[in-house]
Design a protein around this nucleic acid. Structure first.
Lengths: 225, 225
DNA sequence: TTTATGTGATAGTATTACTATTATTTTTGC
DNA sequence: GCAAAAATAATAGTAATACTATCACATAAA
């Protein structure tokens, strides 16, 4: 039984945008089509000019929503982290055993993304491809510290914190919970990228999702007392 | 006893440059100063115009060495992989026990970089900072497949292969050697970046190099039969 | 001493990442 | 149903970037 919750939106830090893209048709169009274009051509080849042309609007109009393409990318990535937290919370609700809960959480974090019809104007499959190829670029800049101070990376931190807590529930003396979780999240992205483009840097195994299995195994072996 | 090998150079794939920067004074100046500038201001804010001004040359002259700043970055990163391989080979030579050899290899891959006076015009400490903040950008582009076909990423692959082989020596049935090694290398970079800019995504522990210890422990626990 | 090679000087182009201004349309409040 | 306010479109312009092209000059190798 699939339940579609229509009164559900992912909140994104309002310092990222000038005008909430969720609040208008044009805004939603910007999100939908920027996802398509960035997924297709990468953030480097994406410009507001091209997007404006595609959605038959103007550059100036887009700049009323986001002050730069970097901010737009930040918006998309942050939306994703918010969505992941929502999936994590839903996916692990009512699971008593912390070990089972951890395994479920790791699965959510590392598995390939499938369509989620709850949020209509966002294509989560394409967005997850963007996250794989572009997300590290949002923090590997000289403005990190600045943006970090504005709380722009808190959704990501919250996600890491969330899973770290489960780990500490299982093994309260484990020394590196955050390091372990962020290694898993970032690693899962990179490994999927490698599998597609630089396969000799990873391992793919027929009949299993090597990424999910590898990182699940990794965490369990690491936190064992 | 420190031995300085002056007749030693790191070879970089000649498809990356138009003219070998090692072959002239101007070339070496380009390398030395581009490392300084990119480390300081990041690749996004680095331009050939600025570099030309700093070394009192012209944009056109720089373009005779590298056809784009992306290629220049590729050169630097590839130099680094070549240098790491050299350090790995030297550091693990004559170690019989594969477990000890693996531990040494992991240390080389994950520890913080110190000055190496063997290669005069390259500041390895600054270069390693560039690798931490910028290296993923060289393959997270839409030209990966193209560049990969030209063999531009082989030094990285060779490094991964090298360590993978040690792992298989210890446990021939281990399923994910490449994934494990690339997770370690990429992870070490990201964790050092997080420690400096987004500390809540990692763990730092007084009196120990948490990155080296975490990843060494991780590998050993993972490959145990 | 010629010739090739490397470097410098200068100029030019298409694109990008914006900002500014004004006109037009759409929405909303009464 | 209309005026006021808000949103969007149209148009123009700027500084910087990422190059390409051309020609002159210096120097070093043949």
């Amino acid at each position: 039984m699939e339940v579609i919750l229509t009164n559900f939106t992912i909140q994104v830090n309002d310092k990222i945008y000038l005008k909430d893209p969720d609040s208008s048709d044009l805004g939603k169009k910007i999100i939908r089509h920027s996802i398509e274009m960035i997924e297709q051509n990468g953030i480097e080849n994406f410009t507001f000019g091209k997007l404006a042309k595609k959605i038959k609007s103007t550059e100036a109009s887009l700049y009323r929503y986001f002050e730069s393409k970097h901010k737009l990318l930040l918006y998309l990535i942050n939306w994703y982290w918010g969505w992941m937290e929502y999936k994590l919370v839903f996916g692990t609700a009512n699971i008593e055993d912390p070990l089972v809960r951890l395994q479920k959480a790791l699965k959510v974090l590392t598995e390939t993304i499938e369509e989620d019809r709850t949020f209509s104007h966002v294509n989560e499959v394409k967005l997850s491809q963007i996250v794989i190829s572009e997300s590290s670029k949002v923090y590997l800049t000289k403005q990190v510290d600045d943006e970090n101070q504005k709380g722009i990376f808190t959704p990501y931190k919250r996600l890491v914190e969330h899973v770290s807590k489960i780990i500490l529930e299982i093994n309260p003396s484990y020394k590196y919970p955050h390091m372990l979780v962020s290694t898993v999240i970032e690693g899962a992205h990179i490994q999927r990228y490698f599998a597609e483009h630089l396969p000799r840097l990873t391992n793919t195994i027929k009949g299993e999702d090597a990424v999910v299995n590898f990182y699940t195994e990794m965490v369990l072996k690491n936190i064992r007392q």
